[in-house]
Simulated scan of single mutants.
Amino acid sequence: MKLSRIAAFSSSLLLAAALALTGANPAQAHEDPAALDYAALGDSYSSGVGAGAYDGASGSCKRSERAFPRLWAARNSPSSFVFAACSGARTGDVTADQLTALGPATDLVSLTVGGNDAGFADVMTTCVLKSESACLDRIDRARSYVDRTLPGRLDSVYAAIRAKAPSARVVVLGYPRFYKLRGTCVAGLGERERSAINAAADHLNTATAKRAADHGYTFAEVVTAFTGHEICSGAAWLHSVNPLGIGESYHPTAAGQSRGYLPVFTTHA
């Protein structure tokens, strides 16, 4: 009896030491998904624009049955699931329109936001339709916005989420790089423009990760998952530009949602 108690006590000490060394918090350990109340917030990368199979009832929000939040919920059968992400959403839209999805019982929140605030749709439209110099200038203005204005707006969203769902695990997902440099594309944007666009995506991800960490949230980067599957890779999980409209351009395909975003979110959920 004494030996078993000593063994149990020793195991407890070892577990505590491991948690201390890794910075893990027992209260934040992954729970049984079936016991979770899950809410998916954010923009088109969460709603699933580009993946098709849109829920007609979602209207212009274009929530897809193939979006990673829907796929995760289908696989894990959480206690409840609210899909509030909406195409075109900015930080202010999340706080104004999506936080009703949250409550004191919410256990898990996923979020992608910031790209629309930084004007990435306009960046891509400018780069596709105008000159290289106009493209690079528009990218510089987006980067300046990310440096000067976006952090405060992210702070507002993150604080509002915590106020509505004080016990929730919040996973903030980033954005992929759009282009494989020196890839298979023989037309379209030049390498200088593609490189600047990728660097701007990295810049946005870095800023978002910093703000998420400062609020105690998990930042889940997807650049690694999409490496080898960018536009010009020959096996892209992102839609290339559509000259008839930006629409689904530069958004994940169904494969990008299921093989890019879903595994990353699953790892951190």
Rank of each mutant, 00 (worst) to 15 (best):
residue 216 G to D: 04
residue 235 A to N: 05
residue 20 A to Q: 14
residue 124 M to Y: 11
residue 75 R to N: 13
residue 192 R to M: 08
residue 256 G to N: 05
residue 96 A to V: 07
residue 90 R to C: 09
residue 62 K to Y: 15
residue 256 G to V: 00
residue 148 R to N: 13
residue 100 T to H: 13
residue 223 V to S: 15
residue 30 H to L: 15
residue 40 A to D: 03
residue 30 H to N: 11
residue 77 S to A: 13
residue 59 G to Y: 05
residue 81 F to Y: 06
residue 104 P to N: 15
residue 20 A to D: 13
residue 31 E to H: 10
residue 205 N to C: 03
residue 12 S to G: 15
residue 101 A to H: 06
residue 95 T to P: 06
residue 169 R to Y: 01
residue 144 S to C: 09
residue 4 S to I: 14
residue 122 D to Y: 10
residue 171 V to P: 02
residue 153 R to G: 07
residue 266 T to V: 04
residue 201 A to S: 12
residue 16 A to P: 12
residue 125 T to H: 08
residue 206 T to D: 15
residue 139 I to K: 01
residue 231 I to R: 01
residue 227 T to N: 14
residue 160 A to Q: 01
residue 167 S to G: 02
residue 35 A to C: 10
residue 132 E to N: 11
residue 207 A to T: 02
residue 66 R to K: 14
residue 170 V to F: 02
residue 202 D to Y: 12
residue 179 Y to D: 05
residue 116 N to C: 10
residue 184 T to G: 01
residue 23 G to F: 13
residue 248 E to N: 10
residue 268 H to I: 07
residue 20 A to V: 14
residue 172 V to R: 00
residue 53 A to I: 07
residue 150 L to Y: 09
residue 31 E to D: 13
residue 169 R to E: 00
residue 180 K to H: 08
residue 22 T to M: 14
residue 230 E to D: 14
residue 169 R to A: 01
residue 14 L to D: 15
residue 173 L to F: 04
residue 265 F to L: 00
residue 202 D to V: 02
residue 134 A to R: 02
residue 69 P to Y: 06
residue 2 K to H: 13
residue 192 R to Y: 04
residue 60 S to K: 11
residue 70 R to A: 06
residue 121 A to K: 10
residue 248 E to V: 04
residue 59 G to L: 04
residue 105 A to E: 15
residue 142 A to G: 08
residue 197 I to C: 03
residue 254 A to D: 03
residue 140 D to P: 01
residue 242 N to W: 08
residue 259 R to L: 13
residue 4 S to C: 12
residue 261 Y to G: 06
